[in-house]
Write a protein that binds this DNA or RNA. Structure first.
Lengths: 197, 197
DNA sequence: GTCTATAGCCAGATAGAC
DNA sequence: GTCTATCTGGCTATAGAC
């Protein structure tokens, strides 16, 4: 019983996802240069040659993942507006999600792009869509409300949000789960930076 | 006029330092694998071949720098006991120094060792000397005094110090000076995590 | 002591068998 | 569609000229 065209396409998409998922795991930890195609194919359980039927090069594979990482981080941050509770509760919840979530792999990937010179030009260009300003603008309404109701610290809003994202980014970048000795600070401790004294 | 043995040795040491300094700059940003010997030799302004007269391999060069990084970070942290002022003032001052200083390159190097698998076994082993416990123990007296005089937040001291170093490490790792958009948070903002409300 | 040229190895990408 | 075998280029480390 032969498969129809749609089924074939679906199988092809699944395999593509399988490769992307394996590649994300390896790229995030090891970076573009530190990753050999053989590592990805092994992680995906297929041969090296086969990957080139789905992606024309290591760079293309990498760039595809960077696109997803940026989109995912923006979508994730937007979630805060659907959350219940006061501004401080929202911020606390968002922080817990970010630090917990396995979106960490995408976070590390974006860090690779930011700090490495050996990354394709296109990946660098894509990162413009994830500038600090983008995130600051998304969180601004929440911080404004929090300042108004007295929960959040006074002061320049952009500076506060920028501080928030910088600290969170730093923590994510340390890749703590696997790093001996370091342990993720409790969210309540972190929040003290932004709450009214 | 020929140089005597001591002068020759000194000239040799200078060249060695010149190579080490160049190597630190490149390794810290690009990691062991991302760095080609030609990059280091170019940064140092010498030929590739010459480096092998001073270091037997890329790995040896890397390990030498890791040793220095660990020693430097410990020495630096110890400084806090020589500082003037109250515990909170000492901690603030230490933080400013760490974030400011060009010891950042050493910081990044240690991060490379922690997170990369492609680093020589010996470098990994050396990092044991820079475990979180080592730093916690160094800062313990200062935090104890700060809690006693009411400047610092109450709570488990090890957790507070560990949080402190984790956040600082994260910020250093982001390599902010060169990273567009990110900016180092003001130290006073960071300190709010540890001061009494 | 320093440089240039090269040997040897390793990994990305391709070709061709099944 | 998938795998194995191979081509090709680039980088570490060495050899040899000056």
């Amino acid at each position: 019983m032969p498969l129809n065209e749609e089924q074939l396409q679906q199988k092809r998409d699944e395999r593509r996802e399988q490769i992307l998922s394996a590649a994300l795991k390896v790229f995030a930890r090891r970076g573009l240069i530190g990753t050999k195609m053989s590592m990805i194919s092994e992680e995906a359980g297929i041969s090296q040659g086969l990957m080139y039927r789905y992606f024309t090069s290591k760079d293309e594979l990498f760039i595809t993942l960077v696109e997803r990482a940026i989109q995912g981080s923006i979508e994730g941050t937007k979630q805060i507006h659907q959350m219940p509770g006061s501004p401080l509760e929202k911020l606390t919840r968002l922080t817990e999600i970010i630090l917990d979530e396995d979106g960490q792999l995408y976070f590390l990937l974006m860090h690779q792009v930011r700090t490495s010179d050996d990354v394709p030009e296109k990946a660098k260009a894509l990162l413009e869509y994830a500038s600090m300003d983008v995130y600051v603008d998304m969180l601004k309404p929440v911080f404004e409300e929090g300042q108004k109701n007295g929960e959040l610290a006074e002061g320049d809003i952009s500076e506060l949000i920028s501080c928030y994202f910088t600290v969170i980014s730093g923590l994510m970048t340390l890749n703590i789960p696997k790093t001996q000795g370091f342990q993720l600070p409790r969210v309540e401790l972190l929040m003290r930076m932004f709450t009214r004294l």
